[in-house]
């Protein structure tokens, strides 16, 4: 089974997303940016799903850190957020380094998106 890392600061949200996906993938979860990066290095997920708005370290920060580290650089990232995308993220989207889906998405849409990436 493929492994996904889901990062969201809201626990109920995290549980929901994980709940939608756990029967299809191995799911790692994290509500904190630094922890998420640590898990990304140790667990080597096939895809990281990132919320953008988070208190300590927002999604873009996490994303940039991941891209700096050679161990995580090649892991695709899916931004899953209710927020409209920023210019920085848009650039990454255009460069093909990141993917984007609006929250809330239906389970079907989310699965379809993930399957199209990995």
């Amino acid at each position: 089974m493929r492994k996904l890392l889901v990062v969201d600061d809201v626990p109920s949200n995290l549980k929901l997303i994980a709940g939608m996906l756990y029967s299809h993938y191995n799911i790692c979860i994290s509500s904190k940016g630094e922890e998420a990066i640590k898990i990304a290095i140790s667990e080597k997920p096939d895809l990281i799903i990132l919320d953008i708005v988070m208190p300590d370290m927002d999604g873009l920060d996490i994303y940039l850190s991941l891209k700096e580290d050679s161990l995580t650089r090649n892991i695709p990232v899916l931004f899953y957020t209710a927020k409209a995308i920023t210019k920085e993220i848009e650039k990454e989207l255009i460069d093909g380094q990141a993917y984007y889906i609006t929250k809330p998405a239906t389970k079907t849409d989310l699965l379809a998106m993930i399957n199209s990436i990995i």
């Binding site: 809201v10 708005v53 209710a82 809330p104």
Partner: peptide, 20 residues
């Protein structure tokens, strides 16, 4: 704003449309 943002996200996911 952050709090409302979080609530909005969750509300959408648990199909609480009015709350959303």
């Amino acid at each position: 704003q952050k709090l409302l943002h979080s609530i909005k996200g969750v509300a959408g996911t648990i199909y609480a449309y009015h709350l959303y």
